[in-house]
Computed example of a mutant assay.
Amino acid sequence: MTTITLGPSGTYSHRAASAIADDGDIEFAESMTAIVEAVANGEADHGVVPVENSIEGSVTESLDAFAEYDVAVVKEIITPIRHALLAQREDFELVCSHAQALAQCRGWLDEHYPGVDVEAVASTARGVQRAREDPSVAAIGHPDNASNGTELDVLAEDIQDQSSNATRFLAVAPASERSEAGGKSSFIVYPNADYPGLLLKLLEPFADRDINLTRVESRPSGERLGDYVFHIDIAAGLYEERTQDALGDIAELAENGWVRRLGSYDSVTVLD
């Protein structure tokens, strides 16, 4: 079975994907949208995408892809993030990494390398590739990337601004694999409406049934200015009667729009 994730080899996404697939069955894409699209179109059996970081918040490209393509969420993967500064020499001129990694290390870079130029690239591993090819470039990535047959040195470790830095990944599969079993559930609501108290009405069905909301995020629908899609995660399974009753109320509120049940799933934590 093929699993697709953000590449090239050595990204944090690759580490997360390795928790559910053998390395020989992992393929790489350059964007979260491409990963979700490949799974929806049957070009890959599973995909692994980042959705939330404890420092920088949601990965909006992944959320937007879930709204665009019909897939199932089948597992949550939590992995601690350990960033290191990697380079061939100490007098580098540019730091390259994924935009999220650069943001997660912004304070450390400002303190230790004030004024250094930074450049966002498609992934942390892509930044490592740049540093391998150009001695004037440093990268931010996992420290193991310096020992994978490269000439890079680890100039500093654990440079993330918060020691508790962790990223939440979701494994997605074709919609036919959607399950109602699991301790967590995700779904998307497009009310196609706008009136005072709408968000409160969307949240009350869960509060009334003692269902904990673990994440609520609004994203532009793309239909018109001020029109939103809501991404909601709960600490309950779709198989539970209370969840079914709450979603019944939500469906009535979104009668002019739609509700997409991404599925229920369990969580695994991957440690270095």
Rank of each mutant, 00 (worst) to 15 (best):
T3C: 10
T5M: 10
P8V: 00
P8T: 00
H14R: 08
H14I: 01
R15M: 12
A16L: 09
A17G: 10
S18C: 06
S18V: 02
A19W: 02
D23M: 11
E27P: 01
F28Y: 15
T33P: 00
V36I: 06
V39F: 09
N41I: 11
D45S: 07
H46C: 11
E52M: 10
S54P: 11
I55H: 09
E56W: 10
S58P: 13
S62H: 09
L63W: 14
L63R: 02
E68W: 04
Y69F: 15
A72K: 00
I77Q: 01
I77G: 01
T79G: 14
T79N: 12
L86M: 07
L86I: 09
E90G: 04
D91S: 12
D91W: 04
L94Q: 09
L94G: 06
V95C: 10
C96M: 14
H98Y: 02
Q100Y: 03
Q100E: 05
C105F: 09
L109Q: 13
L109K: 08
D110N: 14
D110Q: 13
D110G: 10
G115I: 04
D117G: 11
V118G: 11
V121Y: 09
V121K: 02
A125L: 08
G127L: 12
R132D: 04
A138G: 12
A139D: 07
N148K: 11
T150C: 06
T150L: 03
E151V: 08
L155V: 05
D158A: 12
Q160W: 07
Q160G: 15
Q160R: 08
D161I: 07
S163D: 12
N165F: 07
N165P: 01
A166V: 11
R168W: 15
E177L: 09
E177I: 00
S185A: 14
S186I: 01
P191Y: 00
N192I: 04
N192L: 04
A193Q: 04
Y195R: 12
Y195F: 13
Y195G: 03
G197A: 05
L198S: 06
L199I: 13
L199Q: 09
L199V: 13
K201R: 10
L203N: 03
E204L: 08
A207G: 04
A207L: 05
D208C: 01
D208F: 00
R209W: 01
N212S: 09
L213T: 04
L213H: 05
T214K: 00
V216P: 04
V216W: 09
S218Y: 02
R219S: 05
G222T: 00
G226H: 05
G226D: 11
F230P: 07
D233I: 00
A235N: 05
A235V: 07
A236H: 08
Y239N: 09
T243G: 03
Q244D: 14
Q244S: 06
D245T: 14
D249E: 15
A251T: 04
A251I: 01
E252R: 15
E252W: 14
E252D: 15
L253C: 11
L253K: 03
W258L: 13
L262P: 11
Y265W: 12
Y265K: 04
D266Q: 06
V268Y: 01
L271T: 13
